[in-house]
């Protein structure tokens, strides 16, 4: 059986310096995989190659058996990949519901419809997804005035608009309280289970990582130095030395 996401020999360098070198891994449907490592280890580069923002120098990325290496973010999204950003990216002049509606309009390829009030399109579906992430009561608010944690939840709802098979989340809980972090990750895990999604996320908070990830990969200086189930990674001598230190 082919995995949902398969990565082989992914490599990217800038000006002769390897940002990511020969990274290979796989992710099964319904599983949650964490990518951790110090700042500058290549997490973002790795992540952005998966979502199409950066074109790899070498290596192959397959999503549900299809080669997506070098495709644009748009094309990858159309193949059923939802994503959230480290620094939230939302349409700040629009309301929460309108943010959802844009994503749904795009999913149904209705963006070039020149007639009718867009505010009346897909209201039910938008509100259902907002309810799912606990944002239903804020649907009418302008995005620009939302609290940070709420923006993160909105991003999750937006990422679900195209019925994705794979979720890519870049530091999904950065800047949230510990309780909120756990809630968001529990919600993500539930959605992943119920809908059969694979989730790949990067994260700095080790509590979140060890509590919620099925598997963990550790990146250092562009190379994978360890991967495995949480207990394995926690006890890995190299990971302790380069990243975790004595704190955990």
């Amino acid at each position: 059986m082919t995995a949902l996401l398969e990565v082989e020999g992914l490599t990217k360098s800038y000006g002769g310096v390897h940002a990511v070198r020969d990274v290979s891994f796989a992710l099964e449907t319904g599983k949650i995989l964490a990518l951790i490592g110090p700042n500058g280890a290549g997490k973002s580069t790795c992540f952005n190659m998966l979502n199409g923002q950066i074109r790899p120098d070498r290596g192959v990325i397959r999503i549900a058996g299809r080669n997506t290496t070098g495709l644009s973010p748009r094309a990858i999204w159309r193949l059923g990949v939802g994503r959230t950003f480290q620094i939230t990216a939302t349409f700040n002049s629009m309301t929460v519901r309108e943010n959802m509606q844009v994503a749904l309009l795009s999913h149904h390829r209705e963006l070039f419809v020149p007639r009718g009030f867009a505010g009346r399109f897909h209201v039910g579906r938008a509100d259902a997804l907002l309810d799912l992430v606990g944002m239903g009561h804020q649907a009418e608010r302008a995005c620009g005035e939302l609290a940070y944690g709420d923006l993160k939840r909105l991003e999750l709802a937006v990422a679900l608009a195209n019925e994705p098979k794979l979720l890519l989340m870049d530091e999904p809980t950065a800047g949230m309280a510990p309780k909120e972090r756990a809630d968001l990750m529990n919600l993500t895990a539930r959605i992943a289970r119920e809908r059969g999604l694979g989730v790949l996320f990067t994260e700095h908070d080790m509590d979140v990582v060890f509590a919620h990830a099925d598997r963990i990969m550790v990146l250092n200086r562009g190379e994978l130095i360890a991967q495995g189930v949480p207990q394995q990674v926690r006890n890995d001598a190299r990971v302790k030395a380069t990243y975790l230190g004595g704190a955990t």
Partner: peptide, 9 residues
């Protein structure tokens, strides 16, 4: 914020 546990120490 955003630092590796070792650097935080």
């Amino acid at each position: 914020e955003g630092l590796a546990p070792k650097i935080v120490e």
